[in-house]
Design a protein around this nucleic acid. Structure first.
Length: 486
RNA sequence: GGCCCGUUGGUCAAGCGGUUAAGACUCCGCCCUCUCACGGCGGCAACACCAGUUCGAGUCUGGUACGGGUCACCA
């Protein structure tokens, strides 16, 4: 069997939206599942859209996600060059080969004539569009003459006039169109450069691509691609057209309306593994029930035929959930390493980082939530003492005052400020008072944080912020409660 | 407008002629619990519509509606 070779061929426009990333992932997986090669080709021929540093964005994004390419502009390979602008010279000969075999022709119609043609078509009530094939049957002599005279020309593909053309897509099946729908499209422009469609076919063949994986917007031009392959007598690759990633039911996710890019999501605190995992599932489904995968597992289970036909709406909620699951899979040490910088955005004081992180990990869906979650450790906001009321633990301002006054001397006496000793001390008090844990300790959490929800219970918060701050906040709470209950 | 494609809960989706129509996310309830989470258990919620084929249709065929894509000397 022929070796699987796929490519990702982005334009360097300075931005990688998640739809692009997903296409890259699918192409990567299709190659790697069959132990094949993944190729990166930069399509930079649209000089007008070139953006400084854009190629690096592509490199970095792919690398961060582990989508390493076997061949590409930087690493080379046997099918280079891998930057399209460096390949411009080699297309014209292929077009001329097509002219010689009767599958293409020189066309001398100017843009002005095309304009007029469209005007006429409109006036005649016809649908505006296709070139009228005026130059299709020029005699070879006339062609030679006009070329020799220096007249500008393009080379157009000669479409069959009658009949149909069909192609197979792994996702959409066989698609057949009437040849009358096909325009004699331009292959080589007046400047001698190839059009995108032509360069693509030639490049993909020269690079021996086994699969062409791209967006479904190319579905309607694929018959023309197929005709080109046939005219050359080349093997047709397996087409895999992917439906678009949508922002909502009507709009594609796009850079134009400022939708989140991969980089934006990372900046918001999403893990790249989670983003990739979510993208995998957006428009594709695995065989079993499992949804959480790392790259290696993705490669193993990948089956491109399970890609869905219909567009998929990007759902940030689901991404959050998957991100949370990936965070939970992290080791404690890994989590500390990635969470610490986020914690430090709002917390400068000395804290028990390990314990804080252990509490944060199951409470954190996106890293970007962390700063706000932990800010109280540095600065406590004023709070409503009604927070001390809890039906389940039968607490209110009065009982909270009692609880804190019970705890205060115990904590003050403690020399060993550890989880074990604090817990033991609290358990003793609970037993002596014959109350529930919550009655004694729920108020502690409020006193230390001033908020209802915190990353950790009262005793953990005490350890995280240290003895000194704990006692200070307890004293402040006692003072506050005394004035309220007086 | 022509052509092509699509349509299962709010979202992602399984399903490939016979199912009580999976599962995940969201939301709600219960349990666990020193807050909030995590975890466990349970619940709400779907085959766009109309014909036809068939003993039987989410699954096959045709049409309708709605949505998307495409009709460049742009990639």
């Amino acid at each position: 069997m022929k070796q699987a070779r796929t490519r990702f061929a982005p334009s360097p426009t300075g931005y990688m939206h998640v739809g692009n990333l997903r296409t890259a992932l699918y192409a990567f997986l299709t190659a790697k599942h069959e132990d094949g090669s993944f190729v990166l080709r930069i399509e930079d021929t649209d000089q007008g859209r070139l953006v400084e540093g854009a190629v690096d964005v592509i490199y970095n994004t792919l690398k961060e996600n582990g989508l390493n390419w076997d061949e590409g502009p930087d690493v080379g390979g046997n099918y280079g060059p891998y930057v399209q602008s460096e390949r411009m010279g080699l297309f014209k000969q292929y077009a001329e080969q097509l002219v010689a075999s009767g599958h293409a022709y020189y066309c001398f119609c100017t843009e002005e004539r095309m304009q007029e043609l469209h005007e006429q078509q409109k006036a005649a009530g016809e649908t505006v569009g296709h070139y009228d094939r005026k130059c299709r049957d020029l005699s070879p002599e006339e062609v030679q003459q006009r070329i020799a005279a220096g007249e500008p020309y393009v080379i157009r593909q000669k479409m069959p006039i009658e009949g149909t053309t069909s192609f197979d897509d792994l996702i959409y099946g066989t698609i057949e169109v009437n040849n009358s729908e096909l325009e004699d499209q331009i292959l080589i422009k007046t400047d001698g450069m190839p059009t995108y469609n032509f360069a693509n076919v030639v490049d993909d063949h020269l690079m021996e691509m086994s699969h062409v994986i791209r967006g479904s917007e190319y579905l309607s031009s694929t018959p023309k691609y197929n005709l080109l392959y046939q005219a050359f007598g080349w093997d047709v690759p397996t087409y895999i057209h992917c439906p678009p990633v949508m922002k909502d039911a009507h709009n594609k996710l796009s850079k134009r309306n400022g939708d989140a890019s991969y980089q934006d999501l990372v900046a918001q605190g999403y893990l790249s593994e989670a983003i990739l995992n979510y993208l995998l599932l957006l428009g594709w489904s695995p065989k079993g029930e499992e949804e959480i995968f790392d790259l290696e597992e993705m490669i193993r289970i990948w089956d491109p035929s399970r890609i869905n036909k219909s567009p998929a709406i990007f759902d940030i909620q689901k991404l959050r959930a998957i991100n949370a699951m990936h965070i939970k899979k992290l080791s404690d040490a890994q989590f500390v390493a990635i969470a610490a910088p986020w914690i430090r955005q709002t917390v400068a004081s000395e804290i028990d980082m390990e314990l804080l992180c252990a509490n944060l990990k199951p409470r954190c869906e996106v890293l970007g939530d962390i700063p706000e979650q932990v800010a109280f450790l540095d600065t406590m906001q004023e709070y409503d003492t009604a927070l001390y009321c809890n039906k389940k633990f039968k607490t209110n301002e009065q009982t909270a005052l009692q609880a804190l006054e019970t705890l205060l001397p115990i904590f003050t006496e403690l020399t060993d400020w550890t989880k074990d000793s604090i817990s033991a001390a609290c358990q003793n008090a609970v037993q002596a008072l014959e109350v529930k844990n919550g009655w004694l300790l729920y108020p502690l959490g409020i006193a230390l944080s001033g908020q209802r929800s915190t990353p950790g219970g009262g005793t953990d918060l005490a350890i995280i912020m240290g003895k000194e701050k704990t006692l200070a906040r307890m004293n402040a709470a006692v003072a506050l409660l005394r004035t309220v209950t007086a």
